[in-house]
Design a protein around this nucleic acid. Structure first.
Lengths: 401, 401
DNA sequence: TCAATTATGTAAAAAAATATACATAAAAAT
DNA sequence: ATTTTTATGTATATTTTTTTACATAATTGA
């Protein structure tokens, strides 16, 4: 008898998946909108939605929308229906967290990390910490694990690729390793792409074509093309830090080439130039500290860095014609000192057609944007039309009943 | 009685639209594949497919695929089910054609054109010529009209945008004007994007991320990102001709800026430099003629142009990480003299991660690739899941019965 | 040649979805 | 307060789709 009921439930849930996807993506957030968006009859929508409400993956929010008549009751994913484990691996620390499906931070912690540590030891310590965080939540459904890496990542294969600052991680099969520990999808993505996803999903969900530039110790960017993150063939898209400009004084980059953007405008390059002038600076943070102390040398170099970034940004604008550029990373805390140079070069170099509607703005300083981006990445993928059915199957079989 | 039958037919056709879309996109090309791809039952697929075969929009091709058992009968759009009117507006001529849905050339003609002529007079002459071409086909179903423009185009709005070489076309509502003459969708797109679509759909349909560079009198490019043409916010994406490089000898560009790629490596720039050296050259064609005559000056300048294009191509590779770059346009007829410089700079400047799998090749010389691209654009859009239903409705109401 | 394999068609029964018609609910507009 | 408007629920008849079961078709491989 129970078996029969479960069978029934399984079948209903499979059918309900397209509705769940519409709700999760924000395409439709009410019964009326679901009717229009799904093309199904009201009876069917009602019935399937009730299944989703019944198993607790969707909820009626407290919010309503005025409609001219009876207000629309807003539907949404139930944040507490499951949790994600996310981690942002930096160059000195790893920031770990458990997040709800809202996505909201449920619990977090930070552990030390050395780029020399190697993947196995690191992942072992991470799973230990993840397990501790998860235990604090009590029972719950693990939706996915999602990692932010400070290196290029081949997203499809779930691996660090290319010469990386992380020793021993190149081509290490992170997904398989973590897959032995967690029976849930594992995502691995580059930190700049995740910060880009955060800015897009969290702040500018309606902008279809935008760029996020991270100006920190290094310089990188992420691309939203047609509303989706664009990764390129190897996941290396947006790598603007090592675009070269010729000039008589082209400085040597840490990649071994001359005149890279990063060697001119990255935090480490500015720190190098400041040190030459006798000021103590090693990191992007030090540079910003000096700028905030109004040191003229630091301000001048940050302005010049803005121009260099503007030079490469103008290439990006000519090639991609975005409608928005968001500038983040530690150097963005230098505010207009950085931004004005970027704007100057972009408006000087690009054709009016491309700059007419273009906005170039600063990101809010936010230390955990990659972490939240990692959560958004999970939600976008797990609830996508192609995968939502798998999600639901896992959800009903694993949820505490 | 006939009314009832028509009602029935209409309803069946609306349901059959998703199957038509799968066939047209190449996602499924057999009954078995349709079963798998559509998720519908065999009975339903058979029935709907029979409707499509019955009205003559789909056909069983002569081709079969070995399967290990009974061979798969391959399905496809019936080429003669309708025709498209396409035109490639160049700077001195307009190339017009009627094309089948294959897409194959059914009839074509060329008329003179002056960039000073203005849109109304031009479109009037074009419709006259289109009507003549269509009359030669006898009765038939007009699927769409599609135009290739030698200027930036805002595809969504169907208009020429930005300062253009065509006087009076800027912001002229081409779609509305032609819409009064033809009761069919009207498409207007930039020629480089259409050449890009041609290369992608015709030669490299499986490549998801590629760039087409047109090196002719001017220099432009088109971007395929995630398997689709990428246009950017204003349709200006791929505009690499006016990316600037600093150098002491930066030449003046026709856009008014100094040091643009086009002013260094465009056909007009090379002709300018050749003329300075006493050789007679005005167009990209003249330049290639001199190269084919083995004139050392011309070869040298073409090589150098290749390096300049390689410089901007390396920016594109860093930003987009494509897996293929196709180089076309008149200058591409210079073969390795152009290509080697491009390759040299890209491999020198880009990180191995981005260049490891990258292929850089020449396009086949083909004068009507924009024209065929214009046809592919129509087919991709008209049979897209979102629009295929409209297509079918128009098809049954207008087809000769 | 014959078995194995995959492709494809279809009748009949069962299941699912829709259309129709009639409800109630909760706000804004009057 | 009452009407209007939009949101939403549901029983019933009807229509559509799927499932099941049994076919035939056209190859490859033993």
């Amino acid at each position: 008898m129970t078996d029969y009921a479960t069978e029934k439930e399984r079948a209903s849930l499979a059918n309900a998946s397209d509705i769940l996807s519409l709700i999760a993506s924000g395409t439709a957030n009410s019964r009326a909108a679901l009717l229009a968006a799904s093309g199904m009859s009201r009876v069917t929508v009602t019935q399937r939605l009730n299944v989703l409400l019944g198993v607790g993956i969707v909820e009626e929010t407290l919010r309503t929308l005025p409609s001219g008549g009876r207000p629309t009751r807003v539907l949404g994913i139930r944040g507490s229906a499951g949790y994600m484990l996310v981690a942002d691996i930096g160059e000195t620390h790893i920031h770990l967290a458990a997040m709800s499906l809202a996505p909201d931070l449920l619990a977090q912690s930070t552990i030390a990390f050395s780029i020399a540590e190697g993947p196995v030891a690191t992942l072992q310590r991470m799973t230990g910490e993840f397990d501790r965080l998860a235990a604090g939540l009590g029972q719950g459904f693990l939706v996915a694990v999602s990692l932010s890496m400070p290196t290029p990542v081949d997203f499809k294969r779930g691996r660090v690729v290319g010469p990386s600052v992380l020793y021993g991680w190149d081509d290490f099969d992170i997904v398989s390793w973590l897959g032995r520990h967690y029976k849930a999808p594992i995502y691995v993505e580059n930190d700049v792409n995740l910060m880009t996803i955060y800015e897009h999903r969290h702040n500018f969900p309606l902008v279809d074509d935008m760029i996020f530039i991270k100006a920190g110790t290094g310089i990188g960017s992420g691309i939203i093309a047609g509303g989706k993150i664009f990764r390129g063939a190897q996941g290396a898209a947006g790598d603007i830090g090592h675009i070269q400009f010729n000039s008589p004084d082209a400085p040597l980059c840490r990649c071994g080439k001359l005149g890279c953007v990063e060697a001119r405008a990255g935090g480490w390059a500015i720190a190098r130039d400041l040190a030459e002038k006798g000021l103590r600076a090693e990191t992007a943070r030090d540079v910003i500290a000096l700028v905030e102390m109004q040191k003229p040398e630091a301000i001048m170099l940050l302005r010049r860095a803005g121009q260099t970034i503007g030079e490469v940004a103008s290439d990006v604008v000519s090639i991609l014609n975005p409608s928005l550029i968001v500038v983040g990373g530690m150097l963005a805390r230098g505010g207009d000192f950085l931004l004005s140079g970027i704007r100057e070069l972009v408006y000087q170099r690009c054709l009016p057609l491309a700059t007419g509607e273009l906005k170039i703005i600063l990101a809010e300083p936010k230390t955990d944007s990659a972490l939240i981006g990692a959560a958004h990445l999970v939600l976008d993928d797990v609830f996508s039309p192609a995968k939502v059915e798998d999600f639901l199957a896992r959800f009903i079989s694993k949820r505490p009943s």
